[in-house]
């Protein structure tokens, strides 16, 4: 044996014969299906929302501190970068929200087959789009 990695590739087929196991999806060359992309997106949006939680706490602390502190948060959030961040967080929130509902459905055993997963892909994407657009329509109309 030349390489320890080769040893990890050894397995037995259903007949008991030693075989070289198939390689798992190689992230650099394997085109991930939509379900897999949405799966990793759940984690990415979760980490993004954790950054948003920092800003949420900053906003609350500023509101409880002084007019000056609150004015600073408001100015930052109302800057172009602030709006961009708020928009990104709204997309991340509604994505994580819809995909989280899908996960809860899976926990109850619903839609675990491929057809069900493809249907819920669409539910998650459409739900994210609708909720994000609705949020900003109402928010901008209120300004």
């Amino acid at each position: 044996m030349s390489d320890v990695r080769e040893a990890l590739m050894v397995g037995r087929g259903s007949t008991g014969k030693q075989v070289r196991r198939p390689l798992s999806p190689h992230l650099q060359v394997y085109r991930l299906p939509l379900t897999a992309r949405l799966s990793i997106l759940h984690r990415i949006t979760g980490v993004g929302l954790a950054v948003g939680a920092l800003v949420l706490v900053w906003w609350l602390v500023a509101a409880a501190t002084s007019d000056g502190a609150y004015a600073t948060v408001s100015a930052v959030l109302r800057s172009p970068i602030g709006y961009l961040a708020l928009f990104a967080w709204s997309v991340a929130l509604w994505y994580h929200f819809c995909n989280g509902l899908r996960h809860l459905g899976w926990d109850f055993g619903h839609g675990l087959d491929l057809a069900g997963a493809r249907r819920s892909n669409m539910f998650v994407l459409a739900g994210t789009a609708v909720l994000t657009v609705l949020t900003w329509l109402i928010a901008l109309a209120a300004q």
Partner: peptide, 13 residues
């Protein structure tokens, strides 16, 4: 891997 049948699979356990 030249000969799959000669590989020691102890590492799998």
């Amino acid at each position: 891997m030249a000969n799959p049948n000669s590989v020691d699979v102890a590492v799998m356990r």
